[in-house]
Design a protein around this nucleic acid. Structure first.
Lengths: 168, 168
DNA sequence: ATAAACTTTCAATATTTTTTGAAAGTTCAG
DNA sequence: CTGAACTTTCAAAAAATATTGAAAGTTTAT
């Protein structure tokens, strides 16, 4: 398989994959393009390669930067801005975990904590089921939260190395 | 806070949460409703409580069943079908992990394996970067795959209990 | 100060996804 | 067998989301 073809496929699949995880197609594709590019690219490069509009590229690059996955790069002698993506997949993963935790998990846990305090008969099966479900989710979420915190702090090696040992 | 109000909030937030993770609002809400309900509910109950159409409820219930998160229940003496959701959050999580792994991670890993074989100069920086990125993602994915497999096989207790010890 | 080069914004448009509801299909009691 | 009760399907409509592109804004070289 030729590089060009493989790259196309990768970009297109990464885009499709992203949409299953609440990430818009173009953002995922821009990310894929930058991750597989050895050199920084300009907005125009990206527009051309992905065949999308200037505004679209601009917006999605902004978002990727806010996720900490892409950086602006200045190239001496060039007027334009260029962009690179973090290429270490472990760093990419921990960055995404950090952000999603902050943006989604933490607020949800905060809400669940509030919802556990229900007025009314603790013996009413409906009240009981609600409180049990919510507190179950919250406990699970807290545990996941801690685990993710540790992953983010931990070193890549225990994950990419012999993770298996842990569970013996 | 009253039960009714809390339940509304939970359902609505669970729906919003779901959309950030590629799950449609109604499916997440049906799931939330069933998880917090002590009794099985019929299609009509769900339609009424969430104010959505019959077809919509039907489709999303089907999906939830295919995800293994909801079961049909027969109630003696009733003609209608009723539905319940698995309420053990650990089982819910492992079920979701199992399905997403099968539906998304496994196919992606299969694709990445193919994309690593590029014709062309291994010294070309573009080829090199592409192969490195793809193989990095694949290694990471394989490791994640194994870790998730273990989680699914493992017992709830090491997670919901003192998970922390593992990392000392 | 000017203008070319470049970036950002955002209302309009297009696309994708979800929802509806009525018709067709199924099941079952009598 | 018949029809009432219930479920499923799916084309059309609505809603949500993403994209465009041109105008406005900014920066920089001269």
């Amino acid at each position: 398989m030729k590089l060009t073809e493989a790259k196309q496929q990768f970009i297109s699949s990464w885009g499709a994959f992203g949409t299953h995880w609440g990430i818009n197609r173009t953002m995922a594709q821009v990310h894929a393009l930058l991750m597989t590019s050895s050199q920084p690219l300009s907005q125009d490069d990206i527009m051309e390669q992905l065949e999308v509009s200037r505004g679209n590229v601009n917006m999605n690059i902004r978002d990727l930067i806010s996720w900490g996955l892409v950086d602006r790069v200045l190239i001496p002698g060039e007027r334009k801005e260029f962009f690179t993506a973090e290429k270490d997949i472990w760093k990419v993963a921990t960055q995404i975990i950090k952000e999603r935790k902050k943006r989604e998990l933490d607020p949800m846990l905060k809400l669940l904590a509030q919802l556990e305090h229900i007025d009314g008969d603790k013996k009413d099966p409906e009240v009981k089921q609600f409180v049990e479900t919510v507190s179950g989710i919250r406990k699970f979420g807290k545990q996941a939260d801690q685990m993710l915190d540790m992953m983010v702090k931990a070193d890549e090696s225990w994950f990419l190395g012999g993770l298996l040992k842990i569970f013996k």
